[in-house]
Each structure stands twice: as structure tokens, then as C-alpha cells.
Design a binder for these strands. Structure first.
Length: 593
DNA sequence: CGCGGCGGCGCG
DNA sequence: AAAGCGCGCCGCCGCG
């Protein structure tokens, strides 16, 4: 049963009124008005009295409603986030003639039941998107006035039914239903993570900053250690007024000093130092301070004192995640760079006394997903009970293949998923193809669809965007040899995108299911008759962090492992692909892994 | 002056 | 100085 939560139509003055409307078997049932301050209590009571019959709460936007629940001390069990699901359905329907049902387009995506993707019609059939809600109908408040103009429960109930019909009419309703549930749970988890925050020891962080940069500088000034290095660099280059932060100035100064690099990047500088060991010591002694300066500059600007002031309150880092913010369905994050916390800075992520961090990292998710999607039993077997890359190397050894080392296996497999053609990865590809023809053929089919301007889909049904009209224009007009070359390059490039999309996107779906399973198990588990206090506090593509009392850590560890395998089965059913997880129970993030 | 693009670097 | 995917953030730099 669904219960839709939207604005009440009886817009009384004073406290904001919500309305709850039940929807079951496609019919709207009872209605009830709930004042905002009682919303959490209402949800809690309804869930309790209906247990074990599942209730799925429906709302416009988790980002709006979840903070209300969390502030009232509850978090619903299941949900359907209309904004998130509409986005998933609408990408698939960019081509659709109809804005009522999404089904016709989804049918076109399906060549045959065995194939998880197919071709869409050519670009000229692309229509303007006719979503019901392009006007921001689903947004719950007007940014300019801050006034609530939330959609009513009745309006949302209509949208729900539209979405449910579209899902039922899809080629794989079970999969799309699972995606809707997982994505919605992701919406709740993201809100919970933001609410609880990640433990962040401000004084440890400050200690790290002072030790590496020196004391906090005055505004607009460089920290002492950076200034020292800058002075050293200016002296060695004989350019007293050089701004070390300016790539242009720096590049010119380097070239004047006889260091013939094409860019000032770390890689270029390291490469130059390696290629010219015979050159004067003074010149190489310049590279080191320069690299050191870059390292410090990065720490200072990205995760320095200003960052601490802005993002860490009361020893908690509260990042904003954007569920499905990446085209492939991965989460994005805005503000605070939650998904780029440098290794060195992780020392600041420390457990308080009596608490522990459970840091779990799923091993080689993308190649395992490839094995599962492509049904490549040999690749699945290579990863059973062991490191997948090592498993591949061992197979290579037994069969006398040139691909017989772990490092090679990793480069080759990543290259296959990214579309590498040159370098070591390109060289190893033929051997990989011989070993795993089914998996390799799968990635190449995905690439071919993209090269021709088609769209691909993840296993659960998230569809890749169509190329831009400029892309199609480039394919159409190939007057000169230069045009032809550009068209080919663009085609290949889009092929690499779709090739990667299916794997990265399905891996993101696996990760969503993993987290959803963890959340569910954490909620359902008790210790000495009491619910667990441990919370999911961080997520990074294939890694999660749980924070809670030390005594719960081993339980959490088991939950995380079980959830990983359960996620695989939820997606693919019973398959021979394993999803092993590396777990560190630690009081400091930097010591994990 | 503000803005967007870009080089550079952090993460998976 | 990457190759070969997906991101966010910072400072610089050129544009209007």
C-alpha cells in the first residue's frame, strides 16, 4: 500500500498542513490531514500498526521532507521519491510522443528479453521533452519567496499512478521497480547521512594543518611553509616576482630555465625529472620544491582552515549528496567535496571514545558487475574466493597466456571497461578477449550502440542520455577529411561513454541495493533487546562507513557482508558472482585500507 | 567587475 | 603526460 504525503488542500493559516492519501490497487482511498509537527508521529504510528504489511510512503522530494522526519526523531521504512523516479523515467522518454505513458519508448529500448539494451530511433525523431512536471511542479517551495507551494497529495497521487503505470509497462517491471525502490531509499539515506554527519575531529585536522603548512595565515596570505617553498622556487628560477600559482607564468619561467615541459602538471614535472637524470642537480632540485608546493597548496585551498570553518560543526562533517546526480546514477556531492576527501586528511575522521568506525570497501565491483551482466561464467569464477585480478592472472598462468600478472589483469580489465585502445591496456586486450569472450563482447556491443548514436541501459533500466544535436550534426556533415576525422573521434568517444555507462551505472545500482540492505538490517537488528545505534554516515561509490558504539561493530561487520551478497542476488538472482567486502573496524579512517 | 572555461588535482 | 570512464573544487585567465 502507498500513502502519498502532500500539501493539504484546505490551506489553513498557521501551521502547515499535510494530507495523507492512501493508494492501493490503483485506487485512491482514505484521506487524513496531519499538521507538520505531528508528521513524524503519524508515520511512526501507521508503520507500527500495519506491520508487517509494508507501507510505501510517497512524496515529492526526500530533500524537503526527510529533514522534518529526522528532526522529529523518526525515519520512514520505505518510500517512493517522485522527483528521483520521474528523472529516471523521463530520460528514457526523451523520445516519447506521449507525456502520459512512458511505455512506448521503453519498448523500443528492448531488442529482445535477453538483451538489457537496444537501439532507439534516429535523432531526428527526438521530440521536446513533455514532462508533466517540467515547470517545477514537484519542487516543494519557491526559492525566491521561500513560501511553501507544495503540490497537494491529490496531485502527487496522480503522478504516482502515472509513474507506476510506466514502470508496469516497461520491458522489465521487476527491475525498474527495484530501481525505484533502491533510488528512493538512496534519497532517504542521503538525508540521514547529512543529518547525522560524519565524525570529524576538528582539532586533529587543525594539528595536521599546522604541522604541514604552519600556523593559520592571515586572510589572503600564504601559510609559512608554502611561502618558504615559493621563495625557494623563485630564487632557483631567478624570477623574483613569479606567482607560483599561475600556470602560465610558471611554465614560461620553467622553460627559460631550460626545463622543457609542455605543462606544469605534476605528471609532466615527474616525467621530466625521470627523463633527465643526467641534467644538473640544481634543475632537479627545483622539481621537488615545486611538487611539494603543489601538494601543500592543494591541502590549503581544498581542505584547509576555511574548509573546516565552512563544513565542520561540532566535530561533524555534514555533506550534501546528490542522489543520482551523475548521469550513470552514481551519487554526486556538492559542497565540501565529500567525495574527494584526500587520503592524508582522513586522519581527522576519528571515532569518539567508546565508538568505532566500520569502513567497508567492496572489492572490484565493476568487473564483477560486468561478469554478472554479461553472464560470463569464467569471469565470475575468476573472482570466486579471491581477488578477481589475481584470479585472472592465475588463469592466464595456467593457460600460458601473456596476461599472467595481477597488475596486467587490472590494467587490461579497466581498459576493457573504459575503452582503452593504446598503451599497455590496448596491448593486453586481445589476451583478455581470448580468456573472457563473453564479457568483452558485452562491453563492445555497448560501445557500438553509442558509436551509432544509440542509448544504452543499465541492468535495472536507467537509460543513458542521447548524444547532443551537435553530435548528430557532426555525424551527418562530413564534407572534408577533417570533418570525417572529427566525426569518427566523436563517435568513438560516445562509444566509450556508453561502454562505461552500463557497467558504472549497474555498479551504482548494486551499491544502492547494498546500502539499502544495510539500512534495513541495521533497523531490524537488536542487541540485548535494544535497537542498534549505529548509523550509515558516509558513502563513496563502492565504500560505506558506519559509525556507532564499539560493542555493535562486529554485528555491523556481519550486516555489511551479508548485505553485499544480498544486493547481488536482489539484482541478478542466484548467480555465481561473489561480492566480497573488505572491512576495517577502526577508530580512524586513515588506517582503513 | 562578474562569469564561464580551463588547467590542475583530489576521489572512485 | 597521459592512455581510457565518471565526478567536484580551486585559482587563474580571458571575455564581455
Amino acid at each position: 500500500m502507498y500513502i502519498v504525503l502532500g500539501a493539504s488542500e484546505s490551506g489553513a493559516a498557521g501551521e502547515f498542513l499535510w494530507e495523507a492519501v492512501t493508494v492501493a490497487d490503483g485506487r485512491v482511498g482514505s484521506r487524513r490531514t496531519v499538521p507538520e509537527s505531528k508528521l513524524g508521529q503519524f508515520v511512526h504510528e501507521v508503520e507500527d500498526s500495519n506491520r508487517p504489511a509494508p507501507i510505501r510512503w510517497v512524496w515529492a522530494d526526500s530533500r524537503q521532507i526527510m529533514p522534518l522526519f529526522l528532526a522529529q526523531g523518526i525515519s520512514p521504512e520505505r518510500s517512493h521519491d517522485l522527483r528521483l523516479i520521474q528523472r529516471i523515467l523521463s530520460i528514457a522518454t526523451t523520445h516519447s510522443q506521449s507525456h502520459i505513458t512512458f511505455a512506448p519508448t521503453l519498448d523500443l529500448l528492448q531488442e529482445s528479453p535477453e538483451k538489457p539494451w537496444g537501439m532507439l530511433p534516429p535523432a531526428r525523431q527526438i521530440q521536446g521533452q513533455d514532462s508533466l512536471f517540467d515547470d517545477g511542479f514537484l519542487s516543494a517551495s519557491k526559492p525566491d519567496t521561500g513560501q511553501k507551494t507544495a503540490p497537494t497529495a491529490s496531485q502527487l497521487a496522480v503522478e504516482l499512478q502515472t509513474q507506476l503505470r510506466a514502470i508496469e509497462a516497461a520491458p522489465h517491471p521487476r527491475r525498474l521497480k527495484l530501481l525505484a525502490a533502491a533510488e528512493s531509499t538512496g534519497g532517504m539515506i542521503a538525508a540521514e547521512m547529512k543529518f547525522h554527519g560524519m565524525p570529524w575531529n576538528k582539532s586533529l585536522h587543525e594539528k595536521l594543518l599546522v604541522e604541514t603548512l604552519g600556523p593559520r595565515p592571515a586572510p589572503f596570505e600564504r601559510p609559512a611553509e608554502m611561502e618558504k617553498l615559493a621563495t625557494e622556487i623563485r630564487e632557483k628560477l631567478a624570477t623574483p616576482k613569479l606567482n607560483v600559482d599561475s600556470p602560465q607564468e610558471l611554465l614560461r619561467a620553467l622553460q627559460s630555465a631550460g626545463i622543457r615541459v609542455k605543462s606544469t602538471s605534476k605528471w609532466a614535472l615527474k616525467g621530466w625529472a625521470e627523463e633527465n637524470p643526467q641534467l644538473a642537480q640544481q634543475r632537479r632540485s627545483l622539481i621537488e620544491p615545486l611538487l611539494a608546493y603543489k601538494k601543500l597548496a592543494r591541502l590549503f585551498t581544498a581542505n584547509g582552515w576555511n574548509w573546516l570553518d565552512e563544513w565542520v560543526q561540532d566535530d561533524r562533517f555534514h555533506p550534501s549528496y546528490e542522489v543520482g546526480g551523475v548521469v550513470t546514477g552514481r551519487w554526486g556531492a556538492h559542497g565540501g567535496g565529500a567525495m574527494q576527501i584526500p587520503r592524508d586528511v582522513r586522519t581527522a575522521v576519528a571515532a569518539e571514545p567508546g565508538k568505532m568506525l566500520v569502513v567497508a570497501d567492496a572489492s572490484q565491483v565493476e568487473p564483477r558487475i560486468l561478469a554478472a551482466m554479461s553472464g560470463d561464467e569464467k569471469l565470475a569464477l575468476a573472482g570466486r574466493g579471491t581477488d578477481l585480478y589475481l584470479g585472472i592472472a592465475k588463469i592466464g598462468e595456467h593457460t600460458g597466456s601473456a596476461l599472467n600478472e595481477r597488475a596486467q589483469a587490472k590494467i587490461a580489465l579497466l581498459g576493457a571497461m573504459y575503452g582503452a585502445t593504446t598503451g599497455e591496456s590496448g596491448k593486453l586486450m586481445p589476451h583478455l578477449r581470448t580468456m573472457f569472450p563473453q564479457a568483452i563482447e558485452f562491453t563492445e556491443r555497448a560501445a557500438r550502440v553509442g558509436e551509432q548514436g544509440g542509448q544504452v541501459s543499465t541492468y535495472l533500466g536507467r537509460v543513458s542520455p542521447a548524444p547532443s544535436s551537435e553530435w548528430f550534426e557532426r555525424q551527418r556533415r562530413q564534407a572534408t577529411a577533417e570533418d570525417e576525422r572529427a566525426a569518427m573521434a566523436a563517435s568513438r568517444s560516445w562509444g566509450r561513454f556508453t561502454r562505461n555507462f552500463v557497467v558504472q551505472g549497474t555498479a551504482a545500482e548494486w551499491a544502492l541495493c547494498w546500502m539499502a540492505q544495510i539500512r534495513q538490517k541495521l533497523r531490524a537488528t537488536t542487541l540485548f533487546g535494544k535497537p542498534l545505534q549505529s548509523q550509515l554516515v558516509y558513502f563513496l561509490h563502492d565504500e560505506i562507513m558506519i559509525y556507532g558504539p564499539e560493542r555493535e561493530a562486529s554485528l555491523c561487520e556481519q550486516i555489511v557482508r551479508d548485505a553485499a551478497q544480498a544486493a547481488g542476488e536482489l539484482l541478478f538472482g542466484h548467480i555465481s558472482v561473489e561480492f566480497p567486502v573488505t572491512i576495517a573496524v577502526t577508530d580512524n579512517y586513515s588506517t582503513a585500507k
